[in-house]
Design a protein around this nucleic acid. Sequence first.
DNA 1: ACCACAACCTGGCCGC
DNA 2: TGCGGCCAGGTTGTGG
Length: 270
Amino acid sequence: MPELPEVETIARELRRDLVGRRIVDVEVRWERTIALPSAAEVKPVLVGRQIMGTDRRGKYLLFPLSGGQTLVIHLRMTGQLHVVGPEATPDKHTHLVLTLDSGRRLFFRDMRKFGRVYVVADVATILRQLGPEPLNPDLTPQQLAARLAGRKAPIKSLLLDQRVVAGIGNIYADEILFAASIDPRRPGGDLQMNEIARIHTVTRRVLAQAIFDHGSSLQNYQRPGGAKGQNQERHQVFRRTGKPCARCGTAIVRVVIGQRATHFCPQCQR
DNA sequence: ACCACAACCTGGCCGC
DNA sequence: TGCGGCCAGGTTGTGG
């Protein structure tokens, strides 16, 4: 569910409640949520640690802790993080509860149980494979071109590949390719430099706008306070099958690329 | 390198 | 109401 803009929103909105707080208790309610270390070991690793920051890399949330370890959370499809008061009770989808020295608690909820929590000394063990951050101003169109060169996979699949660029998921891949007027089925290596430059530019614009809108709430995504994002109101193609393209009026088409639903305008994207 | 497919899970929706 | 089938914003692993 959450992609870069949603994860960025969550990191920002957790900052006020988490940074500087100390973890005083840990309750694991679904053991497989804890990927590293084991569910049995995670409590002693976390209790007593102070949360030093709330950061994001790709779709991963990073919480550096006093003592040098980092709490890493990937929300996958349906994960949510909520800071709640002492009176709140965890429901059946709440798989991890961290109690803070403020008396408030951090709930990790995840209906589909795909989300994972890690505590590691070196975040590189988890982030090593990730490609560059698309919003990093140091990422040039030439570097993006180099990562697409020679690739025969459809550009849609390459944008979803976290080793090529980090943080883009199915919603924003479709929206980026519409904004860039590129057919999602085109092999990445076939794209001209001016087309890659367009993708580079609109990726930054689309993601920055989505962060400004606090992400896209289609089904499960919620901000830590329970509010929804607003960016779904700007979607041009995603889940708009059969509806008119805002630019030319042609009906938006849905196809499957790399096992993923893909939406595009057959007139504007060639 | 790439594709297809399965797994991991639950819930919503649709048709019958 | 119930049941089966399909769908879902993500990632990883297997086999070809």
